[in-house]
Design a protein around this nucleic acid. Structure first.
Length: 479
RNA sequence: GGGCCCGUAGCUCAGUCAGGUAGAGCAUCUGGCUUUUAACCAGGUGGUCGGGGGUUCGAUCCCCCCCGGGCCCGCCA
């Protein structure tokens, strides 16, 4: 929305031959740097740039708060300290304009660290109004749809994204330092798999074929392992055609990593190390507050055995649950599931009996085999699979397998999933012949895991909505 | 997909219970002010009360439908 008074000031600037949208500015320092190093910088000349977020003036004396990437600093302007042209310019400056300031670092009479503005130039004339300066922007819909306003009006929101970036960068450093190679595998896939989820479908005209936005990058990373890369990872945007809620967005970010010659026990140790050292790096402690409760990341994390735990609490042995019994169990336990089969009912029992008791980081291990189409059977118990999920604050953060490497068994499991698809389970992925061919070539023993960056960022910024950690969360288009 | 709640000025919010032509603060405009910092003082501008329909002499308010958002439930990471 263009404000007519701001537009008039823009015209006035142009009439005076002042470029309201110049090309660059020498931004020597940032607000927080000046504040942190004030004792050595006082009296020095420097330059800053940023958005004017508050302008107070008393006659010919101006106080302008400039917000840059680091924070805010006050700029002073008056006929005594400021060039004539710059003072005249201030008559055409509004809150929201982006300014460049050169001047002397000093304190105001009231003691606030400030820049005595000598030369002030406009770097961008803003034409639309700033949100409220005291309450900020609080309408969640506006905050998510117009994140630029949110970031400008609510600078504390920036910390969430900075923490998110630090998490990702820590993951990369952790994996890189262990010899992992980062890959980028296809987002547009001719078939999809690696997770139980409905995909987004799109049409590729040039190839006259339907493509799918990946629900997972698992099967591609495994092909790299088969090719001999040994340690691979990807920061993967995945897409699932499902509902949006406070912990789900249709596009989300996982870091998946795979390492040859390891099993899920090795990865439990490594995951524990990765997450706990990340928390230590960010907070200087293993213990943090989340929603008013302490979360303790001190390793080792608690271990809970999936099937034993459900049996203990419900009396049901899910490892031998069949699709035929599923309906009966669902009815008795009051479970509503999208599809009534062993997979979904077992999942329902998990959510009912185990999930509520998971606050501190916990590994839940050894899932029923029929829930794990890409996983090796548990050594000594073929009803179970060597799979764990890691939970933090009751939310699933990651999912790890001793990867299935037997091509015959993999084909059998894919065929089983095809049957489930035919029986109406929309989330069961199709068989992937290309992957089967790859695994027939011989895949080394491998462990792999996917960890959710969005959710980890949520927990480590003490948020309860995933949208706060997505710069541009998926919103319904405005009509 | 189901339930509950919300949508009033650019922003933050009152008003709706009990129907009678809309208010505040900030922003903005005009004037004043040389140490303010939610600056202050004085005076202005600004609204199809989310959209459509209904009831009524009269609807921001009551009813219905639609749009958008939030929370909870179901499903999924």
């Amino acid at each position: 929305m263009i404000d007519k008074f701001k537009q008039e000031k823009l015209k006035k600037l142009l009439d005076l031959g002042i470029d309201p949208y110049p090309y660059s500015f020498r931004q020597e320092m940032h607000a927080e740097e000046i504040k942190a190093r004030f004792d050595e910088l006082q009296g020095r000349r420097s330059s800053i740039a940023g958005r004017a977020v508050s302008i107070r003036h008393m006659g010919q004396l101006f106080f302008i708060d400039i917000l840059d990437a680091s924070g805010k600093i006050q700029v002073l302007a008056s006929p005594q300290m400021t060039k004539k042209e710059s003072l005249e310019l201030l008559g055409m400056v509004d809150m929201g304009d982006i300014l460049g300031i050169e001047g002397i670092i000093n304190r105001s009479k009231r003691g606030e660290i400030s820049i005595e503005g000598h030369e002030i130039i406009i770097l961008s004339k803003s034409l639309s109004p700033m949100p409220e300066k005291f309450h900020g922007l609080s309408d969640t819909e506006l905050r998510y749809r117009k994140r630029h306003l949110d970031l400008a009006a609510n600078p504390e929101v920036r910390k969430y994204f900075i923490t998110r970036a630090r998490i990702l960068s820590y993951f990369r450093r952790f994996l890189d330092s262990r010899g992992y190679i980062e890959f980028e595998t296809p987002i547009l896939q001719p078939t999809y798999g690696g997770a139980n989820a409905e995909p987004f479908v799109t049409r590729y005209k040039a190839l006259d074929a339907d493509f799918y936005l990946r629900v997972s990058d698992e099967l591609y990373l495994k092909r790299l392992i088969i090719g001999g890369m040994e340690k691979v990872y990807e920061v993967s945007k995945d897409f699932r055609n499902e509902d949006i809620d406070s912990t789900h967005n249709p596009e989300f970010t996982q870091v998946e990593f795979y390492e040859a010659y390891k099993d899920y026990n090795d990865f439990m140790t490594m995951t524990e190390e990765l997450i706990s050292s990340l928390v230590m790096e960010l907070f200087g402690s293993y213990r943090i507050q989340y929603q008013g409760k302490e979360l303790d990341f001190t390793p080792p994390f608690r271990r809970v055995y999936w099937v034993e735990e459900v049996k203990k609490l419900s009396g049901i042995d899910v490892s031998v649950l069949t699709d035929d019994q599923a309906g009966q169990v669902a009815a008795r336990e009051g479970l509503k599931t999208s599809t009534v089969n062993a997979y979904h009912v077992a999942d329902g029992l998990f959510d009912k009996y185990i999930k509520p008791n998971l606050h501190n980081p916990t590994f839940v291990l050894d899932f029923p085999s029929y829930m794990c189409p890409l996983t090796k059977d548990k050594r000594g118990n073929p009803k179970l699979s060597e799979r764990f999920e890691v939970f933090i604050a009751g939310r699933e953060e990651g999912n790890c397998y001793s990867e299935l490497t037997d091509p015959i068994e993999q084909r059998r499991k894919f065929e089983q999933q095809e049957l489930e698809r035919e029986h109406g389970d929309a989330e069961a992925p199709p068989s992937d012949e290309g992957f089967l061919e790859a695994i027939e070539f011989g895949m080394p023993p491998t462990a792999g895991i996917g960890l959710s960056i969005d959710r980890l960022a949520m927990i480590l910024t003490d948020n309860i909505s995933i949208k706060e950690l997505l710069a541009f969360p998926t919103m319904r288009p405005k009509k």
